[in-house]
């Protein structure tokens, strides 16, 4: 029997597979078709202090081996999540869940995280800093080491839960941001969020997405994600949750060899709603194939 257990910021996962924020809703649609307790955990839809409608449609465009999304953080707001979604999740999922939080000001992050901190179902706060900082000139928090550190410090001050900062790859040097988050007290890092892209309709001679730009994810980004995890693993001493294009148990192992302690799977859930379950089920056989007895032993092993 191989051991698929890993420990993420002090919380044990029966396996490292975590559906990624924005691709799993609050779990309900998937719980209808399989027992989602087979998953290590899941990261729920990016939640903000206030409810958000998000961007106008079209919000989705296809790309070679992937997709663009410009959902724009549609979510019912933190109060609704606590009042409605968490009790619902309790019925379908009996493990700690990862709370994904977004904001457009430091205050937004603090408000949402403070409220979520009191919820015992929540294992980790995953803080998405790819959003524009409306008080800081609209640049994403995650593209400035200083702003990323500021969010980290502010969130750490209001929660006892492990804080995992979710990094954007749309930067010159991701290790700089990673190091700034670590120095500011982050317990872990999660990467990568989507890469900014555009598609244009030949027929309409206009961008397909109403928002013009969207975030690229899916297998197309896998090597970029691996590269980011590789670089960040070399630069910090806190655990990494690796994601971007993972679609198979083999991809999970490759991502862990690059340095990830756990992984998230995003777009693949949308095209194959059973993907989470399949990857969890495939993992032991693939581990055996590559002579891995204990998954924790391969974290970062490719660095030699």
């Amino acid at each position: 029997m191989v051991n698929t257990k890993v420990s993420l910021c002090g919380i044990e996962l029966t396996n490292p597979i975590i559906p990624a924020s924005g691709t799993f809703g609050f779990g309900a649609e998937f719980a209808e078709i399989y027992d989602i307790n087979v998953l290590g955990s899941f990261s729920f839809k990016g939640t903000t202090a206030e409810p958000r409608f998000g961007n106008p449609t079209p919000r989705i465009a296809e790309t070679p081996s992937g997709m663009l999304n410009a959902v724009g953080l549609q979510n019912p707001g933190v109060d609704h999540v606590i009042a409605e979604e968490l009790p619902m999740i309790k019925k379908i999922f009996n493990k700690p869940v990862m709370a994904n939080v977004s904001g457009f000001s430091i205050n937004d992050y603090v408000t949402a995280c403070e409220k979520l901190d009191s919820q015992e179902q929540i294992g980790w706060l995953e803080v998405n800093i790819s959003c524009p900082n409306v008080h800081g000139g609209g640049m994403s928090f995650g593209t400035s080491a200083e702003a990323a550190a500021e969010v980290t410090r502010a969130v750490k001050a209001v929660t006892k839960k492990p804080v995992i900062m979710k990094l954007t790859p749309n930067v010159t040097d991701i290790t700089e941001i990673a190091k700034a988050c670590e120095a500011a007290g982050a317990d872990g890092l999660s990467l990568i969020n989507t890469l900014t892209g555009v598609r244009i309709s030949l027929k309409n001679r206009r961008p397909i997405l109403a928002n013009v730009t969207g975030g690229l994810s899916g297998p197309a980004v896998f090597p970029v994600a691996l590269r980011c995890v590789w670089q960040v693993y070399k630069s910090v001493n806190i655990p990494i949750v690796g994601m971007g294009g993972i679609s198979s148990a083999e991809d999970v192992i490759e991502m862990m060899m690059a340095g990830a302690t756990a992984v998230e799977i995003g777009a693949v859930n949308l095209v194959d709603p059973y993907a989470g379950k399949k990857i969890v089920e495939d993992l032991p056989a693939v581990m055996e194939k590559y002579k891995i007895n204990d998954l924790s032993e391969i974290i970062g092993v490719a660095h030699g």
Partner: peptide
Amino acid sequence: EERMGCGFGACMGCTCK
């Protein structure tokens, strides 16, 4: 009709008011 990511309610790709 709307452009869809998933088609089963998970991604919020197709929301209308």
